[in-house]
């Protein structure tokens, strides 16, 4: 009977052939399309999971790829006393000598500006510090930033009067200024640097908790002192700093 059908088709080659539904061909095409779609989805899904902003052995400091990132190498572990000041080379500072008492960086949202020397020590412990200009960042923008900090270890935020751009992010040796709170580079900076285990900041695994009154009290932090720096402020070449003397000599 197959031969009969075939014979008919060969008699009028073009017209009757259209009646013949090529199920095998259609099936093969459907399978191939499903395969391509599946592989495509798998690859897309995987690439979405492997964030380019997550530190890894192959990508030890992803922040290097963030447009506008500013880098500066600093030595860690140089301490000053609570009475001393440091003439920092950057605004806000992101490395250099610092107070022996680190500022609490366990998700602290400081309502007031905090002394530079304490904040820089928290950067040494792997914290990301969001500084914002209180005159230009308010309302919804401030809420957006707060949500990135509150309850997050190794995060802290404080107003910083006189910033050049409305928002400035600091990590030890890294800084990024951005114009508004929705800038995607904010999350890229945080993901790349906060708690990065690859030695981009000096003290991996160090605490962000404060010991309270007598040390650093998050409810009553030492007040911010702006520029110009006083004549006796310590220079960035680490002379006159260190833990010697015992007053500011904590880790």
């Amino acid at each position: 009977m197959a031969g009969a059908r075939k014979r008919t088709s060969s008699a009028g080659r073009s017209a009757p052939k259209n009646r013949q539904v090529p199920w095998l061909l259609i099936g093969a095409i459907v399978v191939v399309l499903a395969l391509i779609g599946g592989i495509g989805f798998f690859l897309f899904d995987r690439s979405a999971q492997i964030s380019p902003w997550r530190p890894s052995q192959d990508n030890r400091d992803p922040s290097l790829a963030i447009p506008g990132i500013v880098l500066q190498a600093y030595e860690g572990q140089h301490h000053v006393t609570p009475e001393q000041r440091v003439a920092y080379d950057r605004t806000p500072p992101f490395g250099g000598p610092h107070d022996g008492y680190w500022a609490a960086c366990n998700g602290q949202v400081y309502p007031q500006p905090v002394r530079n020397e304490n904040m820089v020590h928290s950067l040494e412990h792997g914290a990301v510090w969001i500084a914002y200009d209180p005159a230009r960042v308010q309302g919804a923008a401030l809420d957006t930033l707060t949500a990135k900090v509150q309850g997050q270890n190794q995060m802290m935020m404080s107003p910083y009067p006189g910033l050049e751009q409305p928002i400035s992010l600091q990590s030890w040796g890294h800084q990024l200024a951005v114009p508004d709170a929705t800038d995607p580079r904010i999350d890229q900076f945080i993901s790349s640097l906060r708690g990065n285990p690859n030695g981009v900041f000096p003290e991996v695994g160090a605490s962000c908790d404060a010991l309270g009154p007598g040390a650093f009290d998050p409810a009553n932090p030492p007040p911010f002192e702006g520029q110009p720096y006083p004549r006796d402020a310590l220079p960035m070449n680490y002379q006159g700093t260190s833990g010697a003397g015992g007053m500011g000599g904590a880790g």
Binding site: G76, Q77, P197, G199, P202, V204, S242, G246, G249
Partner: peptide, 28 residues
């Protein structure tokens, strides 16, 4: 690699802390 990374960070941290403690001892 993660073990090497952790050991490296221990060397960095403890070398610096040793300097601090040497100074604190001298001060006392």
């Amino acid at each position: 690699p993660a073990v090497r990374t952790l050991a490296t960070s221990m060397v960095t941290t403890q070398t610096a802390e040793s300097q601090t403690m040497t100074q604190l001892l001298a001060a006392r």
